[in-house]
Simulated assay, not measured.
Amino acid sequence: MMLDEIDRALLKALQLDAAQSTTRLGKKLGLSQPATWRRIKRLQEIGVIRGRQLRLDAEKLGFRVTVFLGIKLATKGRVSLEDFERAIGGIPEVQTVDHVLGLYDYRLRVVARDLADFERVLRRRIMTLPGVGDVEANVLLSEERRPGPL
């Protein structure tokens, strides 16, 4: 897959604001609106652009606590990774699930209204999942850097 400088500039602009119109993007890049649209469409078709997301402010929506959980499965032989991933996918407070290499098998990003709400989610929903063994929790104090453009 060959990306030229205009493709790269287009991707950078979309990462900063995916809601921009193709007309506005085209003006920034020196392209017509149809040419900009065709490039975006091509980047979607080849899988470089996988979608556009809306980012919400969790705190303003009442989720004031973010916790990163390290989860080590107790018995990998009895419970498949797919079973765990399917079960964890049903918990809306779990924002991300990363299968990782290291001390833990999974890293989760969990949001909750407060610490009592997090404890409820942890005890009643996460700890009861198949195969959950050791769990380590790290409460997010502040987030200094947001993911930027690639």
Rank of each mutant, 00 (worst) to 15 (best):
V100Y: 00
D134F: 13
K12W: 04
E143F: 09
D17M: 07
A112K: 01
D98Q: 05
T23S: 13
E143Q: 15
G131Y: 11
L10W: 09
E144G: 14
L10R: 05
G89R: 09
E85L: 11
E143H: 08
V132P: 03
G26D: 11
R42A: 11
L61Y: 05
I71T: 04
S32V: 12
G148T: 13
G148S: 14
V139Y: 03
R125S: 09
D117F: 04
E136V: 04
R50P: 03
R125G: 00
A116G: 14
Q44K: 12
V79T: 15
L108P: 03
V48P: 04
K72I: 10
F68T: 00
L10F: 05
V48E: 06
G30S: 12
E93T: 03
D114T: 14
H99K: 14
D98G: 02
P149F: 13
N138F: 15
G51W: 08
R78G: 02
A13G: 03
I91T: 03
D83A: 07
K12G: 04
I40R: 04
K76H: 12
I40K: 10
D105W: 11
I46C: 10
G131H: 13
H99E: 02
T22V: 06
T36I: 08
R113E: 05
L3V: 04
T96Y: 00
A87Q: 12
D114M: 12
Q20N: 06
T66N: 04
V110C: 00
L61H: 13
F84H: 04
V94C: 01
Y104H: 05
P149D: 12
V97P: 01
E82R: 13
G30V: 07
L54W: 02
V139I: 15
I40F: 02
E93P: 01
F63V: 09
L140E: 13
P34L: 09
I6T: 14
L10E: 08
L14K: 13
L103F: 09
